[in-house]
Computed example of a mutant assay.
Amino acid sequence: MRLLHTSDWHVGRTFHGRDLLAEQEAVLGGLADLVSDERVDVVLVAGDLFDRAVPNAEAIAVCTRVLERVRAAGAQVVVTPGNHDSAARLGLFGGFAAAGGLHLRTRVADLHEPVLFADAHGPVAVYGIPFLEPETARHALGVEGKGHEAVLTEAMRRVREDLAGRAGTRSVVLAHAFVTGGEPCESERTIAVGGVQDVPAGVFAGVDYVALGHLHGQQTLAEGLRYSGSPLAYSFSETQQVKSVWLVEVDGSGLGGVERRALPVPRRLSTLTGELEDLLSDPGHAPVEDHFVSAVLTDRVRPLDSLRRLQTRFPHAVHVEWRPADGRVDELRFAERVRGRSDEEIGCCFLEDVRGEPPNERELLLLREAIAAAAREEAS
């Protein structure tokens, strides 16, 4: 049996305020091509199908079209909710969806009940563990201990107990968690409770393959314990990551092998460093003009309207940071900086802090007029 492990679609997410639905549909639509080309039987989505608990209509439409394409390509789909999803909403009409090959495993009470598939070697049990918010899940599971480790330990105990009664059945688990040894990115929402979010890898012992979700970089913690990562980069910290899915082979003895399959990149990410005018004129930057761009500006004085000006050349520039080449960026310690100073001195200092140079004569005149107008308003 061939399985495709993916996770963290985050359909509906924006990138520094930019809509990503077109890019998401382009990438996720490629999963259907993989299903067809690689003769995939089951697609596993390990959490965070959507980016928010109440996705908008456009995000739902994109997700629906993608899932329809995957089903039309011949694979069944098993989905579990992540920390971004609403399990209740995602599981709505789950019983009807299963009849059409879309298995929504959203109920904590049912996590030990697998979706059963079969190949020439017999049954394969796929257990979907929804994201377990520790405080809520420990009551549902009857666990006294607190934290992610306690609730996932009980969840896996139930899975292994069910599996023990299914002699000769190979097993797969979907889980959305932070497993010790994983490397996080900037784009993930923390799931820490009381400062502790790690779950030891040993919690997942006893099954053939664990399809993990939550971390956005593809990672191998053990041969049968892997993160697929997100299909798109959701922060500039992911620029160097190769976004992929895992193609998992389950044979007669269990896990037969795992291979990486790269996903298409609809728009790449690039970070540029230099003075604004150089970035706008240097022909060497032509290859990244259509990328999502983050710019680190090294001008001695903070350039005005820098993002808009960058977008005249790089229409998908989304982020600007001012970092003067001399390393001088004054920290704003408000209480200390304003103590004993006049309104005019405070205004002048503010301009110098944010721009890197004091106001000129015209700006100083405008500042004085504004201060005088404010004083008249206050007196009246």
Rank of each mutant, 00 (worst) to 15 (best):
L3G: 11
L4A: 13
T6F: 08
S7R: 02
W9S: 10
R13D: 01
H16I: 01
L20F: 06
E25D: 10
V27N: 03
G29L: 05
G29W: 06
E38L: 08
V43Y: 08
A46W: 09
A46T: 03
D51N: 12
E58K: 10
E58V: 00
L67D: 08
G82D: 12
D85C: 12
S86E: 07
A87H: 13
L92Q: 11
G95H: 10
F96H: 09
F96E: 13
F96Y: 10
A97C: 12
A99Q: 13
D110P: 04
L111S: 06
H112P: 03
P114Y: 05
A118Q: 13
A120T: 10
V124I: 15
V124W: 13
A125E: 05
Y127F: 15
G128E: 08
P130L: 06
F131M: 07
P134S: 14
H139P: 00
A140V: 13
G142A: 12
E149T: 15
V151S: 07
L152F: 12
T153P: 12
R157D: 15
D162K: 13
A164S: 15
A164T: 13
S171Q: 09
V173A: 08
H176N: 06
A177D: 04
A177I: 01
F178Q: 02
G181T: 05
G182K: 08
E183L: 14
C185F: 00
E186P: 03
R189P: 03
I191Q: 01
A192L: 13
A192Y: 03
G194L: 03
D198H: 02
P200Y: 02
A201V: 03
V207N: 10
D208M: 06
V210D: 11
A211K: 13
Q219W: 11
Y234R: 05
S235Y: 04
S235L: 05
E238Y: 02
T239A: 14
T239R: 15
Q241S: 14
Q241M: 02
V242E: 12
S244V: 00
W246H: 10
W246G: 00
V248P: 07
E249M: 01
D251W: 00
L255V: 10
G256V: 02
V258F: 00
R261S: 09
R268A: 15
T271G: 06
E275W: 00
E277Y: 00
S281V: 12
G284I: 00
H285A: 04
F292T: 04
D299G: 11
D299W: 02
V301R: 13
P303Y: 03
P303F: 03
L304D: 14
R308I: 00
L310H: 08
Q311W: 01
A317S: 08
W322L: 08
W322T: 05
R333F: 12
E336L: 12
R337E: 15
R339K: 14
G340R: 02
G340M: 02
E344S: 12
E345T: 11
I346K: 10
F350N: 04
P359K: 06
N360F: 01
R362D: 15
E363L: 09
L364K: 11
R368L: 11
I371W: 10
A372M: 07
E378G: 03
